[in-house]
């Protein structure tokens, strides 16, 4: 039974249509990857689920409730949390304040101290840095803060938009290991990535997005073996 279901949505940026009749679903406890090149509409899709953009057509259902017209703050209240592309930290605030802001919604707010303990044990580096301004951290550390901030919201569904963007290969490994760990602890994860190999190898299922349409879908290991994906995305 699906946890999040996107049904036949069309999304426009101004006059330009970015997503065409797209449908996908995520089951509870799954890790699902959405892969695709630049401009395929991956970020737009996440923004639409988060409520930053409203779809022109179609339906988005989360835990049996339609959410396609709900404002972003209501979607956060329901438990869908997005870690945005490019980290988007509150740069002039301390790491700790960034994490506290993550727990702004009413479900998370009651357990801030407790959740912060969990986040610190998952990402111990953040504890060392907690009083530093977010802008003074390195790229990899900033990405960890962004993920930690997302976890502070106690997500039911965590959506990560290109967490590996702009990071050194060794840090990319770290970030994907962290994502896998989050999933192992029981959070459903929707991962949007250009790093096809890493993201598919930690996912249960995957969707391939091309020009705003789902081009392929299937179990992650099947996709990794697919000849089209091998040539188009893995360069093999």
């Amino acid at each position: 039974m699906s946890f999040l279901e996107v049904k036949n949505i069309d999304v426009f940026y101004g006059d330009v249509q970015v997503i065409f009749d797209l449908s996908l679903e995520v089951m509870e406890g799954e890790v699902v990857s959405i892969i695709g090149g630049n401009g395929a509409g991956k970020s737009t899709l996440l923004k639409t689920i988060s409520g930053l953009i409203n779809p022109a057509k179609g339906e988005i259902v989360f835990e049996h409730a339609p959410i396609q017209t709900a404002p972003p703050e209501e979607i956060v209240e329901r438990g869908i949390i997005q870690v945005p592309e490019g980290r988007r930290l509150f740069t002039l605030m301390s790491v700790k304040d960034n994490l506290i802001i993550g727990a702004y919604n009413s479900r998370a707010e009651k357990n801030v101290a407790e959740t912060m303990e969990d986040v610190y044990s998952l990402l111990p580096k953040l504890k060392e840095r907690e009083s530093q301004l977010a802008m003074t951290l390195s790229g990899g550390e900033q990405q960890m803060v962004a993920v930690g901030r997302g976890l502070m919201a106690r997500p039911k569904l965590l959506m990560l938009d290109e967490p590996s963007l702009g990071l050194a290969p060794i840090l990319i490994k770290d970030i994907f290991r962290t994502v896998r760990e989050i999933a192992n602890q029981g959070t459903t994860v929707l991962l949007v990535e250009q790093d096809v190999k890493h993201s598919l190898s930690l996912s249960d299922r995957g969707y391939v997005l091309e020009h705003g349409r789902i081009a392929m879908e299937g179990p992650a290991d099947k996709l990794l073996d697919d000849p089209h994906i091998k040539t188009a995305y893995l360069g093999l």
Binding site: L52, P72, F90, I101, Y104, N105
Partner: peptide, 22 residues
Amino acid sequence: RTGRAIRATSLDREAASLMGIN
């Protein structure tokens, strides 16, 4: 709490929305 939300909104409106801040 409100003060932090004000600062967050001032730094990045869209990111603040994604934290559940109206």
